[in-house]
Design a protein around this nucleic acid. Structure first.
Lengths: 143, 143
DNA sequence: CTACATGCAAAAGATTTGCTTTGCG
DNA sequence: CGCAAAGCAAATCTTTTGCATGTAG
């Protein structure tokens, strides 16, 4: 959502902690994603990273994205299209998405009430809620 | 969720209405999906249909699934895996899914309260809610 | 130094499509 | 009959992987 200056150090920290090498390309890819607020897909991340440093390959982008996803730095969003799209995941902020079905625009929102209801639903079914995904599809009113 | 005997006629009706031919293979594919309560993917639908009638090809299954999806007979569910999975969509029943992250089991549930909150959220953002997708990922309690 | 990461190109997996044949209405 | 639909195989698109080389720690 918003750019966070300390995202870079968060990744660095993460790499150090998990014994993962903090390479040149990982830094750039992390930067690119951190500075994107438009939910790019893997190829888009590749294009942007590659523009900054042509040494970066698509395979590395895919590998890095997967790595970041596993370490909860990145969040994958599936919007029905074929490509998965990604966004930065911050530690204490969780949001969901509303997609404008006409323009494709993605709006982020937070709703605590829904979150707590989800937890309640899961518990009632005998589960502890670990994660969730919610997308609303809407049409702009007044147009 | 539950098998509905009149699903077949619903599809037939739909075909008639939209000037879509009600072919042998479409009938079988509709039947298969209607009688599946385990959210099969395209290939699984193909295997089951093909077992009933070997004349059915994978391409037809894909084309038919897309057709049904466009006509709101089918609902696509994306579970992070690579293949899209499908379920029958009934006119007046809407449910969401809770996925057991250990076993992969899918549990369907309905929660009116969440639905109305979603509508409220969309409205507050200036949108009319047309559709939504919600998946909860949980771990079984007491095991 | 050494093990892990990258680049490249090829493979794999899912879905779509072109073209000819088939069959519904 | 005529045109939409099916079959088959080839094409496409996204993501993954094997292998030789490069580089962070």
């Amino acid at each position: 959502m918003k750019k966070s200056k300390n995202q870079i150090s968060r990744i660095e920290k993460l790499c150090a902690e998990s014994g993962v090498k903090f390479t040149h390309q990982r830094k750039i890819i992390a930067d690119v994603i951190s500075n994107s607020n438009d939910h790019p897909d893997a190829n888009e991340v590749y294009l942007r990273s590659n523009k900054i440093d042509p040494r970066i390959s698509l395979a590395t982008v895919y590998r890095t994205i997967k790595l970041f996803e596993e370490h909860n730095v990145l969040n994958r969003i599936e919007l029905g299209g074929k490509r998965a799209r990604y966004e930065e995941l911050n530690e204490n902020e969780h949001h969901d998405h509303l997609i404008d079905i006409d323009s494709g625009e993605i709006i982020e929102f937070v709703n605590e009430e829904i979150e707590s209801l989800q937890m309640k639903v899961a518990k009632k079914l005998g589960y502890k809620l670990v994660n969730h995904r919610m997308e609303l599809f809407g049409k702009k009113i007044s147009k």
